[in-house]
Design a protein around this nucleic acid. Structure first.
Lengths: 128, 128
DNA sequence: ACGAATGCGTTACATATGTAACGAACAGGC
DNA sequence: GCCTGTTCGTTACATATGTAACGCATTCGT
């Protein structure tokens, strides 16, 4: 399953909330917070593209990137992984407790519940 | 703050639940689950020792290791970090969320609440 | 038309992490 | 006393991640 690292996640989160962005736009938004130089931001974006986690579109000669991963699935996967691997929780996880996250809308919380639990299909398990 | 990586955490969790153990004992317990060769288990233990996260004691010539990190503080730190960095939760976090974890006793859950929240002292903040 | 700014591909290098072998030393069994 | 299993220190190497510079091509302002 797609487990973006912290740097990649920072970029993805921006794309999720702001939609398709150019490298410069991404940098202006997340660069400062990460204390990245522009070239670093670009490297992260390139690696995301290599992994197929963002798609690149050419808009009048300018590269614009868009998240290729689904926000809820990705966050849900990270949550499930954390709960299982770090806290050794095995049963169903209560998604409602993540309602605090500004990254998840009410609608998404519904999906999250399903994803966190039912979908044992793309974490440790159904990897094949 | 102490943020053990997944491998290190696997070893620490075993030491926390089983108490001081020899390298062999640790390996017999966590090696299979991690699909580690004995030498790999030893490497992880050595790195933990280098970081001062386990202490080594000599028992009649045999090295016995014990966790030097507090279980609740460590887990709490990981939880706080995850909630803040991954889910961008900023307010107080409900410790009850982790009641499911077999790694935390009821008594520890009380501490956890305090640690997760009040102790912004050793994550991103008071690092100095 | 020319210089400055910008976008982008390429390349680099350090540290962290995963994963493990090798060899010396020592302890017991026979 | 010798073979064997065990312990432990040392060393190694690949991949992942953090972090960034460099140089070329292009564009835009003047």
């Amino acid at each position: 399953m797609s487990q973006p690292n912290p740097s990649e996640l920072a970029v993805l989160k921006h794309l999720w909330s702001s939609g398709p962005q150019s490298a410069r736009e991404v940098h202006d938004a997340v660069g400062p917070g990460q204390a990245w130089k522009a070239s670093t931001t670009r490297t992260i974006i390139n690696r995301l593209e290599d992994k197929g986690w963002v798609v690149r579109r050419d808009v009048h000669g300018l590269a614009v990137y868009d998240a290729a991963l689904d926000r809820t699935r990705t966050l849900g996967g990270l949550v499930r992984h954390f709960a299982r691997q770090v806290l050794d929780m095995s049963g169903p996880l209560p998604a409602a407790l993540f309602a605090e996250s500004p990254h998840l809308s009410d609608a998404e919380l519904d999906d999250l519940d399903a994803i966190i639990n039912a979908a044992e299909t793309q974490d440790s398990e159904g990897e094949a």
